[in-house]
Design a protein around this nucleic acid. Structure first.
Lengths: 218, 218
DNA sequence: ATTAATTTTTAGATTAAGCTAAATTAATTT
DNA sequence: AAATTAATTTAGCTTAATCTAAAAATTAAT
């Protein structure tokens, strides 16, 4: 059984190596966890001894498959709790991280499965990050801002960055629901607004500000 | 800020002295927490040093007002999470204790207030135990099933377990409203039905099934 | 390619929580 | 009331997670 601290280290190592797939330095870990390098070294050696990571002195760490699996379990819990806090308890998306940092360590496989069901098996958390499923598999697609989508390309709306009421009402008005397919038809040079079609419906214009607040996957 | 362990000790001391109002022995605490008396002694001294308890060697502990306040906060959290698990995640009432033991230590006053609201400000947990409010005040009595009430005793109807329409209509017909006073006059051995008076009205019979679906406080 | 600077590890303390075994105090029995 | 039993506390050890300071290895710079 993993301690809170072990889980935090696994999650951090996973996060730091996710993009690059390279081994992670103890200093980077210490920075991320606001602790000291000496502490990170200690823990990394412990995780390696338990088979969660492979580690060579002065060369950094990487997670083993076993370690990755555990890290993804924590990520899954963290992100599901974030969805709960936002969707059910009406927290703002930027208020939930610290509470989820605590909730992610609750140990009960049944709890997390029931929570997942209760939330309707969400695929993304309120920040747009994908939620790993029970097996640790998650949507591989990178999240983009609508504003980053090239002309002619299309994607599915997965989340909004700032979910303030006025913005959500605006989205509702133009039919831009979570899950809707959206294609960029053209960009207006003048104000960086986008001409888009939503679920094949007739074209609409979306302002630069709005397009930087809508998250999609290609 | 209290540690998990400190919170567990406060809760346990509170629980053990709740009925009798007498000081609690370190052995009783150790038993309840499945730990050793020596550990309980250590912690009790620490809690006393921090002003949460008053303790005299060989004489046992009692909580100070400050300690009681903290203990009740933990109890409030525990019981609200139990309601959440049963009402929202469909756990059975006897499956929730261990998960709530973990959830009760999550630190976020805002979280617990939002949860309370989300659950509709419940007054009792799924076991019938009263939930302290934000100020630590709670209904003095535990909820019982009507079927658990002894002959001659009376109580106030506070809730029903399964509130299906047919049952509520039946209750209405016999005048058994929430808040009504109900006295058990006799038990029928044959089918375990109860002869009761409701708000002093002429006697009625309530089936075993119905009596196991009505919650009362004495 | 040495030297200097930086990064990383090791060594040794510290704090919190727990344990066992021994010592002490309280309670019970004769 | 003294002796025995039981309850409680103290002393000293252990583990996990942290820290600081010193040592060692790596990287960068002249």
């Amino acid at each position: 059984m993993l301690t809170h601290s072990e889980e935090n280290y696994l999650k951090t190592i996973h996060h730091l190596s996710e993009e690059t797939n390279k081994s992670v330095s103890t200093n980077a870990i210490a920075d991320k966890l606001s602790t000291k390098a000496a502490s990170a070294t200690d823990m990394v050696q412990k995780l390696a001894a338990k088979g969660f990571a492979s580690y060579y002195k002065y060369k950094g760490v990487r997670l083993t498959d076993k370690g990755t699996k555990e890290a993804l379990k924590v990520v899954r819990k963290h992100r599901l709790w974030e969805v709960f806090l936002v969707k059910k308890l009406n927290f703002k998306w930027d208020e939930v991280h610290e509470i989820a940092e605590q909730l992610e360590h609750i140990k009960s496989p049944m709890l997390i499965e029931r929570l997942d069901e209760h939330l309707g098996f969400p695929k993304f958390d309120p920040h747009g990050d994908p939620i790993p499923n029970r097996e640790g598999i998650m949507a591989a697609t990178k999240q983009l801002l609508l504003s980053e989508l090239a002309i002619g390309n299309s994607g599915i709306i997965t989340a909004v960055k700032d979910g303030n009421t006025a913005f959500l009402q605006y989205l509702e008005k133009i039919g831009a629901f979570i899950g809707a397919e959206l294609q960029v038809l053209d960009k207006v040079e003048f104000d960086d607004s986008l001409e888009v079609s939503i679920n094949g419906k007739p074209a609409q214009f979306i302002s630069k500000e709005a397009s930087q607040n809508i998250l999609i996957t290609e």
